[in-house]
Nucleic acid binder design. Structure first.
Length: 282
DNA sequence: ACCCGTGTTCGCTG
DNA sequence: TCAGCGAACACGGG
């Protein structure tokens, strides 16, 4: 379920699992090569023997820095639609759908699991992530620091695009996906169909607050270990079969919890589902 | 069987 | 030139 909050959970997990660790073996499933497209490098062999130095996240991108004998090396990981990183202690069977397994010097394995293989993995020479066009193009990360409202308003500029569609553009803000876009606009009481350019400064301010609240709420739901009794690990929501925690996403036909009078509607914008309350989102 | 999907990129169109 | 849109990628779940 990788939008910013889930990728942040993945980053926190990986930090915990890799601190001071070294990669001692690498196993790849046959179709793992698809993860590297369209890049040419299809082998993670340069990571053998490398030691983890740190994990960064920007938007939905994970940036793993390691130090190999030959110097720094980076591993760039994007989870696509179904990607996730899981840890299995030594002796435990691998999870279904493991595409890549990194065996660490504590005996554990880190598995990259991705049924649809929409995710990406790429080695980055010298861990110079900022030289990747895909990373350089990203807008500011709304969790790293507060959203700069004047800058956001300027970026929305003269766009005629519906605001919900604009929010999915990673060059505007990095990390908002289809769930967070609907949830944020609902919290801000803004109609997702409004052209971006029609948002007044006060609307952009409300929207920024909505984005921050929605991300914080989702992160809290997914990341609080206490939410998952019986597990010391931070979990992914679908693995826990937690019921839908969102205000509008996936809630078509239900009563609006915000105004208590409207009914949540599902529409399609740019080919993606949008959920909102037509009564209180204006 | 059919439809839907938390993301991104590509190619066509107006 | 470019914003906007549908298709494609691939597979599991309802």
């Amino acid at each position: 379920m990788p939008e910013l909050p889930e990728v942040e959970v993945a980053a926190r997990n990986l930090r915990r699992w890799t601190r001071g660790r070294r990669i001692v073996a690498i196993e790849t499933e046959r179709r793992a090569g698809r993860l590297f497209r369209p890049a040419s490098s299809t082998s993670l062999a340069p990571l053998l023997g490398a030691r983890f130095r740190g994990i960064q996240r920007i938007g939905k991108h994970l940036l793993v820095t390691l130090r190999a004998r030959s110097g720094p090396i980076g591993l760039w990981s994007h989870l696509g639609m179904t990607g996730k990183w899981l840890r299995r202690a030594g002796g435990e069977p691998p999870p279904a759908g493991s595409r890549v397994a990194l065996q660490l010097d504590d005996g554990a394995r880190l598995h990259y699991v991705d049924s649809r293989i929409f995710g990406r993995l790429r080695l980055v020479d010298g861990a110079r992530f900022d030289e990747l066009p895909e990373i350089a193009a990203l807008g500011p990360d709304p969790l790293a620091r507060g959203i700069d409202v004047p800058r956001l308003r300027a970026a929305l500029g003269r766009r005629r695009q519906a605001i919900k569609v604009a929010l999915l553009d990673q060059t505007l803000l990095a990390g908002i996906g289809n769930i967070q876009a609907s949830e944020s606009l609902h919290r801000a009481a803004i109609d997702p169909r409004r052209p971006a350019r029609t948002l007044a400064p006060a609307d952009v301010r409300k929207m920024a607050a909505g984005i921050e609240k929605s991300i914080a709420f989702t992160l809290g739901t997914f990341a609080s270990a206490g939410a998952y009794p019986g597990s010391a690990d931070i979990g992914y929501v679908e693995e826990r079969k937690v019921q839908n925690p969102f205000l509008v996403y996936g809630k078509a036909g239900t009563r609006c919890r915000r105004c208590k009078g409207g009914t949540i509607l599902r529409i399609v914008q740019a080919g993606r589902a949008t959920f909102f309350c037509p009564r209180c989102q204006r």
